[in-house]
Amino acid sequence: MSPVAMSLEELIPANRVKSHIYAILIRTALVMSTLVVGLSIPFFGLVMALIGSLFTMLVTLILPCACYLSLLRGRIDLFQGSICVVIIIIGIVSSVFGTYSALSKIIENLS
């Protein structure tokens, strides 16, 4: 939410008092809109768990190690390469288990 709020706050004129009031109003409106979306969409938490299990492991574990291995191909030793491969495998396994868990709970709540 912070990047969205900061982008909207940049559109406000530079008057200090008004900018603080507008910043508070923008952030409050963003939080309230998130609350409305969360309460109005059924299974919102489960959908967020599904998205999180897919993309969090990808962004935090798999992609950094894969990029590291790709960029430094041939210049890293066997230990560093094997550690990266182990981290990638852990990320894939965690992502599969998290995705399976989230999907099974969504299916369970649908029936």
Rank of each mutant, 00 (worst) to 15 (best):
P3D: 10
A5Q: 04
M6A: 12
M6N: 13
M6T: 07
M6R: 13
L8N: 02
L8S: 03
E10F: 01
P13V: 06
N15C: 02
N15A: 10
N15T: 09
K18W: 10
S19F: 00
H20D: 12
I21N: 05
Y22R: 10
Y22G: 00
I24W: 10
T28E: 09
T28V: 06
S33V: 03
S33A: 14
T34A: 12
L46S: 06
M48Q: 09
G52F: 02
M57T: 09
L58I: 12
T60D: 08
I62P: 01
I62N: 03
A66L: 15
A66S: 14
A66Y: 14
L69N: 10
L72G: 00
L72K: 14
R73L: 11
R73H: 14
G74I: 15
R75N: 13
R75V: 13
I76K: 03
I76N: 04
D77T: 05
F79I: 07
F79H: 05
Q80Y: 06
Q80F: 04
G81A: 10
I83D: 02
C84Y: 04
V85L: 12
I88T: 06
I88N: 08
I89V: 15
I92W: 14
S95V: 02
F97I: 15
F97M: 13
T99P: 00
Y100P: 00
A102M: 04
A102R: 05
L103K: 00
S104W: 00
E108D: 11
N109D: 06
L110C: 09
